[in-house]
Design a protein around this nucleic acid. Sequence first.
DNA 1: TATGAATGAGTCTTCATTCAT
DNA 2: TATGAATGAAGACTCATTCAT
Lengths: 209, 209, 209, 209
Amino acid sequence: MYPKFSSLEPEKKERIIKAAIKEFARSGYERASTNEIIKEANIAKGSLFNYFHNKKELYLFLLDYIADFIEKIYDELDWDETDIFKRFKEIASTKFKMYNRFPQAFDFLQAIAQENALEVKSEIDKRMKKFVLDNGFERMCRNIDVTKFRDDIDIEKAMNIINWTALGFAEQQSDQVHSSEDFNVEQLKEWDRYLDLMKRCFYKKEENA
Amino acid sequence: MYPKFSSLEPEKKERIIKAAIKEFARSGYERASTNEIIKEANIAKGSLFNYFHNKKELYLFLLDYIADFIEKIYDELDWDETDIFKRFKEIASTKFKMYNRFPQAFDFLQAIAQENALEVKSEIDKRMKKFVLDNGFERMCRNIDVTKFRDDIDIEKAMNIINWTALGFAEQQSDQVHSSEDFNVEQLKEWDRYLDLMKRCFYKKEENA
Amino acid sequence: MYPKFSSLEPEKKERIIKAAIKEFARSGYERASTNEIIKEANIAKGSLFNYFHNKKELYLFLLDYIADFIEKIYDELDWDETDIFKRFKEIASTKFKMYNRFPQAFDFLQAIAQENALEVKSEIDKRMKKFVLDNGFERMCRNIDVTKFRDDIDIEKAMNIINWTALGFAEQQSDQVHSSEDFNVEQLKEWDRYLDLMKRCFYKKEENA
Amino acid sequence: MYPKFSSLEPEKKERIIKAAIKEFARSGYERASTNEIIKEANIAKGSLFNYFHNKKELYLFLLDYIADFIEKIYDELDWDETDIFKRFKEIASTKFKMYNRFPQAFDFLQAIAQENALEVKSEIDKRMKKFVLDNGFERMCRNIDVTKFRDDIDIEKAMNIINWTALGFAEQQSDQVHSSEDFNVEQLKEWDRYLDLMKRCFYKKEENA
DNA sequence: TATGAATGAGTCTTCATTCAT
DNA sequence: TATGAATGAAGACTCATTCAT
């Protein structure tokens, strides 16, 4: 894909990736300044355009890079767990770990979700929708034991509600925290309470016994 | 406020408003091009700056304009209805009408919520937060009869779930529709089914009798 | 010359002239704002361009207007006085009166002298040089009794020195005063001392007896 | 200071300096067009703003550049000469050389002295007043042997007259020449005659013996 | 391969002048 | 005749991208 960039020394690659993610997260695609990235990464003006033909290509590379990152997270999940609430609980704690490993990724993901620039919007849709817009909702719902749900409720709808609640909760928390000590245990507990509430409501009585 | 613009012929005012909303919705504040607005509205370069002193003033005008628009919608709602699901149902059908009257407003609202530009961010917070960030969640939950909820669930959490579901559903639908024949009756029916599901789950049995 | 302007009611004419002189004096030709003149004179945008075809024509009119004003001052002088120092003394006190009658004229004259704008520079040279650059030096030196000067000095040079000294003194004073109580008696006395000094130096001994 | 500009090839630097001085001299600070400078210097639009952050910085650079130039001239003068007329004679011939080396400097200096733009006025005062407003009058009068003057004349006034005469003569000559073959020997001789005249008038008899 | 100076299309904004009413 | 909204050329300045070294 990006042979010139790939064959760079890893330390330099990382510097460029971090700088670019930081700048794109802060300013969005159009407003992001290649000058700022160059300065932060401590490379020459021309170099960036040697590695990537233009700003868009750099952005698309980062899109793929972040997608790979998320993919790896997903790979760590136990997809054999068939209880949806246990799975969502696991996802949350995995996100928690992920955040501490690579916090900028979250800011960038949020920026991607909010990106308006026409030039890259379609590419985002193509590559990232599954991760960004619904956190891989389809995948998350695969192999779920639907027999636990109450018979009188539409399972697809229930799953949507669970997912939207997860997204809503995440956004609410990120608004509240915003760069303090980040994700914390109390937030995980609060999320547990949401999951419990929904479990009590959506599962058959005997499942909640 | 904006006397020169106000005294314009309505047809021209509307052309300018529509063009500006379209451009700001598409590109955000910073990247939005006054040239594009001028071209789309079919007015002269200087005219825009006769009506509004600068780009920011135009944007702030649109902020107020859209706030007024939403306020009018809210005023039409029956705030004496204490059943949360009936209220959310009414809100949905009101949004439905609103969308058909002024579809661009929705795109612009989304753009406002995502706006990063420092120059206007504080103004957005000042004027729009109540509408944009939580769709007036607080207001929506005021005067709600909470005795109908099951005793074993946290009411605040339940309300959050209802709200996040509303937001999630709206986004899902708008993604699916995206400028075709707009909101339609089928979507309203589907939303009813979501509300019914949640009602069955969150309310006491007798309320669902 | 400017028939439309001339047939205006005098009160309105004066308002426009004062406003224009004030603005041109403050900002120079290019930078002067017709908007400012219009606002100050309390007339409509289009009116100014009815009376004068464009900014340049207005400026040229003011040039002539101020030239007439100066001409009137000169007409009041006693050109039969043949002693150059007495004449320069009279000129100074006439300027003194003139300043109190129409102070803006001086600021405008200074602005004219400093005007750089290509568009009007040649016109200034054509019409105003005699007044501005040398205060009508030629005229001032006409009919002077040159026999009073020492025989060993070049009369033309002596007269130049007297004139340059007058100009230098005027500029020095205007720098020092700069919009306080304007010209004052002390300044006139100091100027007398300069004239006395030069008289003692340039005139024959018997003239200073 | 201005590292990007400083490290340019000298030929290009000179082209830019000449073009900028020409434009600022012709039009003053505000009205001077960076487009014009760019065209005249044959560089790209963006280049000028790579070298200097903005128009003001370019102007301030020129201010310092011209100040250095004048300073060098002054340094060449013999400040141990205590006879004021000899000193003024030397100044004139130094100016003569200076003019032939860098004629535009004179026009620019005149423009600086007449500059009205608020944005740069205070900077001019800070850096240039000593050179511009009085041609370093104070400095010129330092270390002068005042005992040679006649006892019956005010020495400060006499010095002012000499200085104003110098300024007046310079302006008269520059008006007459105005970009032809520049300063010439005849002008220097004429200036000598003025100095002789004043010496005969202001000095004691024995000094003129 | 790495560099960073050079490029110029594009940005918002101003203002003298025109012209329909 | 008086009006002021409309016009658009010109202003300073930005920044992704190119290219000679």
